[in-house]
Amino acid sequence: MALGACTSLQLQQWQDQEDAWLRDTVRRHGWAVQYAAGAPPFAYTVGLYGFGHPELLVYGLDLQASAWVLNQLGDKIRDGERFGPGRPMQLAGWSHRLQLFPFHDGDDPPVLGSAQRFYGRGGADPVPALQLFWDDAGGRFPWEDGYELPGGLQPAPRPHSPE
């Protein structure tokens, strides 16, 4: 359904179904992965905050790669591992390195809309999140010289700016 062409009742019904799916998925698995096929595409977790860990967000990957990366990290978090900004890391079975940066989701509407709704949070006090960046085939990240993927595929991190 095209959300722009919905009545407010249809939008509420869609959101209720989405929220029910989310609650059920988080209850059964510990987290869910939400995917948005925009430009650029992005995916994020909902439920990792319940483990005392920031939610995770990744841009520029297709549905399968996004879900695989986020679920691999989700499994590690469920098992007690914690991730934060810092050194590059690698997942077994994936050729890319990852780096994490704080992500402040103060937009209206929020980027991590389902996560904010799930936890009853919003722009003034969004759920904590980390943005994952992955390197190109040459091992370079978007901020490094020679990065060979399209600009904007992985938007710059958005840390919280004090007001």
Results as ranks from 00 to 15, higher is better:
4 G>K: 03
5 A>L: 05
7 T>G: 05
9 L>D: 04
11 L>K: 12
17 Q>D: 08
18 E>T: 15
18 E>R: 12
22 L>R: 00
22 L>W: 00
23 R>T: 15
24 D>K: 07
27 R>H: 14
28 R>M: 11
35 Y>R: 00
36 A>I: 11
36 A>Y: 11
45 T>P: 00
47 G>N: 09
48 L>P: 00
48 L>R: 00
50 G>M: 00
51 F>S: 05
53 H>C: 04
54 P>T: 11
57 L>Q: 03
58 V>N: 00
59 Y>G: 13
61 L>M: 07
61 L>N: 03
62 D>S: 03
65 A>I: 05
66 S>I: 13
66 S>G: 07
66 S>L: 01
66 S>C: 07
69 V>K: 01
70 L>P: 01
71 N>I: 03
72 Q>N: 01
73 L>V: 05
74 G>A: 04
78 R>M: 13
79 D>E: 09
79 D>R: 12
81 E>K: 06
81 E>P: 03
81 E>Y: 10
83 F>S: 02
84 G>D: 09
85 P>F: 08
86 G>E: 05
87 R>F: 15
87 R>H: 14
88 P>Q: 02
90 Q>K: 07
91 L>T: 00
93 G>T: 05
95 S>D: 12
96 H>E: 15
96 H>D: 15
97 R>S: 14
99 Q>E: 12
100 L>C: 12
102 P>L: 04
103 F>V: 02
106 G>L: 05
107 D>M: 12
108 D>P: 05
112 L>S: 02
114 S>D: 14
127 V>Y: 02
129 A>E: 02
135 D>S: 09
137 A>Y: 04
139 G>S: 13
142 P>C: 08
143 W>C: 09
143 W>I: 13
152 G>I: 15
153 L>F: 14
153 L>K: 03
154 Q>W: 10
155 P>K: 05
155 P>S: 09
156 A>N: 08
156 A>M: 13
160 H>Q: 09
162 P>A: 15
162 P>I: 08
